[in-house]
């Protein structure tokens, strides 16, 4: 188990290093060079002298190795760079937006996992029946829809035609409520985006839970529990589900890793001020530094999610737990 974790840590370190190095190299490999990277479309309009002055100011005339070390040093201090397009330090931009993304995707993950576990259990319990086929096919159909389109259709239906939910944004325009009224306003705005993301992510959890449950229900311990006279419902929840949830828990922890990066297009549709929408705006404005910072942030959270999955699993499965102690 220790060896396993050590191997994983090495793997994550490699991923992190690759992401960092990619971030360092990409702007320097661009046709326009790093000036283009930093200044975006402004670069073409600057005089060569001014450009050279900026390059020297930023240390871009030094050797690559020197630049690389400086790059890593800045990141170690938590300095993500500066966005000329926004006129703000990127760290501030990201910090403003991160909570909203976490709120959105975190809620969606919880909803999707809960629904996937419930529906997957039903499908497994009645495997081969119409209910089972219907649930699997339905979830497959939903997963085949592009998430941004799903969002647009939900907005058009529940927002535009039925008027149940606001169309976009995080708060009603001109709203001045505070406290729980404000929270309610935000919740109403987040309902459709959360639904969109949750519906899109339902398929994976449902299928995993169904598969896991079907194989657990065939295990001998289910028969023994029934033979003990334990009621069917309790066998289902205390014996079968407790075992079938193990892979789902891992899936959930991995999903936490996508909390930051998983909502690019959804946030775009609903005009929510999160990291995803930030990436979209950065693409449109060719604001490369922001794009890179967002990518780095997403990579770090994905690694954190993976690490969490590795650490959580032994807590849930006594077979792995004891090995870990040994």
């Amino acid at each position: 188990m220790r060896r396993f974790l050590a191997g994983r840590l090495v793997q994550y370190a490699v991923v992190l290093w690759l992401a960092l190095t990619l971030n360092f190299l990409l702007p320097r490999l661009m046709p326009g060079g790093p000036a283009q990277f930093l200044l975006g479309d402004e670069a073409g309009r600057l005089s060569p002298e001014l450009k050279a002055a900026i390059m020297s100011e930023l240390g871009l005339d030094r050797s690559l190795g020197h630049q690389y070390l400086a790059f890593l040093g800045r990141l170690a201090r938590g300095d993500l760079g500066y966005s000329l397009a926004r006129g703000e330090p990127i760290r501030k931009v990201v910090a403003d937006r991160l909570p909203w993304t976490v709120l959105l995707t975190g809620s969606a993950l919880v909803v999707a996992t809960w629904a996937g576990v419930a529906l997957g259990t039903v499908a497994a319990w009645r495997r081969g029946s119409r209910v089972d086929v219907g649930l699997v096919m339905g979830a497959m159909l939903l997963a085949s829809m592009p998430v941004f389109w799903l969002g647009m259709v939900l907005v058009a239906t529940f927002g535009l035609h039925l008027g149940w939910f606001p169309l976009f944004g995080l708060r009603t325009a001109g709203a001045t409520q505070t406290g729980w009224r404000a929270a309610l306003d935000v919740a109403r705005h987040l309902a459709l985006p959360v639904l969109t993301l949750a519906v899109h992510n339902l398929f994976g959890t449902l299928l995993l839970m169904r598969h896991s449950m079907v194989s657990v229900l065939g295990e001998d311990f289910v028969l023994l529990a029934r033979a003990k006279g334990v009621p069917a419902r309790r066998v289902m929840y205390r014996h079968a589900m407790r075992n079938a949830l193990l892979p789902v828990a891992t899936h959930f922890a991995l999903g936490l890793g996508f909390v930051v990066g998983g909502a690019t297009v959804t946030e775009t549709i609903f005009s929510l001020p999160g990291i995803g929408r930030l990436m979209y705006e950065a693409v449109l404005a060719r604001d490369y530094p922001v794009l890179q910072a967002a990518f780095l942030l997403v990579t770090v959270t994905v690694i954190a999610g993976n690490l969490l999955a590795d650490l959580v699993y032994p807590l849930l499965d006594p077979r792995v737990r004891r090995e870990a102690r040994a």
């Binding site: 311990f221 023994l224 006279g229 075992n243 006594p318």
Partner: peptide, 23 residues
Amino acid sequence: EGVRWRRVALIPQAAMNSLNPVY
């Protein structure tokens, strides 16, 4: 369910593998 185990207990085939691994 009340009869099972209290009035007739079944030791199933491969009983040594029919204990629940997580309890």
